[in-house]
Design a protein around this nucleic acid. Structure first.
Lengths: 333, 333
DNA sequence: CTTCCCCTTGGGAGGCCTCCCAGAAACCTG
DNA sequence: CAGGTTTCTGGGAGGCCTCCCAAGGGGAAG
């Protein structure tokens, strides 16, 4: 049916030069006469030649692929707007370098083993980590494999080992807290994310940084980035701090849950309690009232992450990148 | 640093057998004595040997990877809960076969070209299409490449060429419409998705199938799967059919927009107007009131899609699979 | 005990590419 | 125009694996 795929030999024959010359043209390493180059390019077009990656890879021991490792459980993954942007940017940028993106999910031990084996086997030239938690055993495996890795979002505790690009969680949280305070709110609570995530701990730091000792222990409750968790956290907060007049919630999804709880408790938003979210995800405009939240520069973070990875592949020295966020004022605060 | 990666030769030497035998053990093609097998397995563990895929691929001319082709613009991708489930199931199932998943986004012409070239180059053993539109030029390129493809969700117009697994859009829409009618609603409108998507046309078919001539043209408006589109469509619907008492919206995200429009128009939900969504996505519980909607059997669809693909790789004959949906009653209807 | 057969094993060949070296061709320079 | 230098080209080697064939070894059957 489909006749045999043309090889570099066929191209060489069709263009009247040798394999070596064809290879040089294909890999753009110069020292090829214009005539030869033209002939080769024509022959490539004519024969429909596409390089055989396996053979190339066998010789160069580079695979031309990057593995994107997802550590989050699926619900969060889906909720994370970062992710689809990152994927788009990553596939696009890598494609420009003729590289492809392999996806692996390291949700459980089996998944982690697979990723570790994959890297150890040299099946990828680099790894792009998404939302990897502090202390994830996978980190060690990655370092041991010697494959260059970068992370999208800081990997707590490994900031110096694994370069990353991230939104300024701390700064964004600071902005939101200052905004709430500036609106005359005096009893401001916070619902954090899990503290072993950067979004969990850094957003909390931003919050306490602004409020200082006014951020007492009882004003802070911990959520898990789920809507149900946000609802439940809000209820706890209301019961310990009934005179609350504002709450900063570390993610929009949790904020949606918090709104629910406030509604059920008969508090009007923003009149009685102002609510600030974080992420500016799709859900932020779906809630009632629409969420005042902090927008992350997702596309920029994604682009920077990939840029870092490529720099690492080229063996350049790289430093972490932190990008500014933006306060988006809607109706909830 | 990391010393040279062990090859099959090293394993052969360490286990005292020949390359051929090691290869047979690794590929499980039998005709190997128990003693030899044990020795080989021990040697593999000891040396930390991982097969070099490039070399294998060069010889077998199978790549061990599947390309997942995403055709949707990113917003929709992100909104689509199907997607993360599909990814998880796909990576998991493929990993069991020691295959990996490569992601490509065919959003624009450049992307489509890349995908086409990738497939023509034989860089993947199969293609898994996600939400590919009818008439997408990519389809032709895929067929021409000869790479086996399956789709998650029907590809309109190519149902007979490209096997697929999908939720029963028509049936789900029918259920929802019957439910609304059963609640005594008499003036039921619909906001559809784009009619060149299966979710757009099939859900509409389910709706009209139940209501028959009661589903007049003016009761039906077309949306674009975005929240803003849903809001705008709802406003149109309200202006032409002011006495509307229910609306079936073809996606939860659009339904969230519709709720917004209804709220602004002073209609109470569900008292004045009942609202039914579709998808049971995360947003369905974030809206107020929470959405009554149709749940898609996402995990099952994903699993079936991958099963179909694997069957095709094994050159089995496969038929499309349609899986039943489930009505989820919450507060909006 | 011999013969035959089958299970198991070893190792050569070849898949396609890039790297590299040696040699040819072109170009300078004095 | 001769000699030296640079640029370009050809093709062998080798990367690691699987496939296949031939041969060895063991067991069963006669």
């Amino acid at each position: 049916m489909a006749r045999k795929r043309p090889t570099i030999h066929d191209v060489a024959a069709a263009s009247g030069v040798s394999r070596g010359t064809v290879s040089r043209v294909l890999n753009g390493q110069g020292n090829v006469s214009l005539a030869a180059e033209t002939a080769v390019r024509r022959a490539v077009a004519e024969t429909g030649y596409v390089v055989n990656r396996a053979a190339r890879s066998l010789k160069t021991s580079r695979t031309g692929s990057i593995v994107m490792v997802l550590s989050e459980p699926q619900e969060r993954l889906f909720e994370d707007p970062n992710f689809s942007v990152l994927m788009r940017v990553a596939t696009g940028t890598l494609a420009d370098r003729d590289m492809s993106l392999v996806l692996m999910i390291a949700g459980d031990d089996g998944g982690r083993d697979r990723v570790a084996r994959y890297l150890r086997g040299g099946h990828a030239d680099g790894a792009l980590l998404v939302s990897t938690h502090a202390g994830d055993p996978l980190l060690e495996a990655i370092e041991r494999s010697g494959v260059p890795a970068v992370a999208c979002g800081a990997v707590l505790g490994r900031e110096s080992v694994i370069p990353y690009a991230a939104a300024d969680d701390r700064g964004g949280a600071r902005d939101m807290t200052e905004y709430l305070a500036g609106q005359g709110r005096r009893r401001i609570g916070m619902i954090t994310g899990p503290l072993d995530t950067p979004g969990g701990s850094l957003r909390l730091e931003g919050f306490t940084g602004v409020l200082g000792r006014r951020a007492t222990k009882q004003m802070i409750v911990h959520g898990d980035y789920t809507q149900a968790g946000g609802e439940e956290a809000m209820r706890r907060l209301l019961s310990t701090v009934p005179d609350l007049d504002a709450v900063f919630v570390a993610s929009d999804l949790m904020a949606a849950g918090a709104l629910q709880a406030l509604h059920e408790a008969g508090r009007r938003v923003p009149h009685d309690v102002a609510v600030g979210g974080f992420d500016d995800s799709a859900i932020a405009t779906a809630t009632r009232p629409a969420l005042t939240t902090v927008r992350q520069p997702l596309a920029a973070v994604a682009a920077e992450t990939v840029r870092l990875l490529i720099a690492r592949l080229d063996e350049e020295q790289v430093d972490p990148v932190v990008l500014p966020t933006e306060l988006v004022v809607r109706d909830s605060a």
